[in-house]
Design a protein around this nucleic acid. Sequence first.
DNA 1: ATCAATCCTTCGATCGTCGAATCATTCGAT
DNA 2: ATCGAATGATTCGACGATCGAAGGATTGAT
Lengths: 157, 157
Amino acid sequence: MSDASDYELSMLVRALVMESNRFLDIFSASHSLHPTDMTALNLIMTARFPMTPGALAKALNMSASATTSVLDRLERAGHVVRDRSPEDRRRVELRVLSAATAVASAFFQPLAVEFSSAWSSLSAADREVVARFLAATTSATTRVLDAVSDPASAHEE
Amino acid sequence: MSDASDYELSMLVRALVMESNRFLDIFSASHSLHPTDMTALNLIMTARFPMTPGALAKALNMSASATTSVLDRLERAGHVVRDRSPEDRRRVELRVLSAATAVASAFFQPLAVEFSSAWSSLSAADREVVARFLAATTSATTRVLDAVSDPASAHEE
DNA sequence: ATCAATCCTTCGATCGTCGAATCATTCGAT
DNA sequence: ATCGAATGATTCGACGATCGAAGGATTGAT
């Protein structure tokens, strides 16, 4: 019994992605932020190293000028400040302010609570299976993406 | 031991969602379609009942007028036709043309191949775990979403 | 010193989306 | 039957998020 064929798993992944996007749209609208700004805020906060506009542009898959606008809005709203890097003064380092962390936690906390409850019945082995599935699916997507945008590196098996 | 804590699972989900969105953006751009149009096309094709502009607007979480524009573009590109419903002639039923199915399969087939390969090592039991995880996570997101948009069931801010 | 390269920003223009108003159709009430 | 309200979809004018090209500042190499 193929209770979870490849096709059905694909549909489930798609449903999750679509619902997540819907959530991002509606939630950020309820906080007077554009979805892009919310995504950017999240990226800036969770980056290991201080984020720069250039790196943010790549992460958002947007032009540099559009990213400037995003940062203008975030700065005007008091969520982010721009500091010029002391080492390389062409670069701008982005830092989040407390207002932003408040918004972000308002964003993630309800989700985290529901997720925690939804996942409470998972055993350690189950979590391992799920984690591998998620990582494998993400990198499979990345592989297809790379093959599309860079046809040279598309090698058959 | 907690190789996959709630937090880590959340990050993995987020990474998958972001990568999927990046894929949608880049892929639809490479086919001269807006991401919204690609999403709409997908929704129209996979709907069980003939899709209408109104239902599509809700599914896309967009205004009715914006949905009209989406359909104008899809129709102009030869992907969709509008037929007035014979029963209720206010309604418009949407049908996809062969050009659209070609685009959609160009979209999904490479993904399906990579997914199939990435998931080939999953046992039936693993698939069951993953399927339940995906469904539970999606509906957890929906629950939070409903709590936000329906203040009646939301507790204190 | 000079020239190229890098990083970010400004500027003008495009186009996707929205809200309000409009047209057509259906349904309910009298 | 007829009128009015409700529903489904579209047009219209406006806004604004994003883009590409050009510009200014800083760094590094020769």
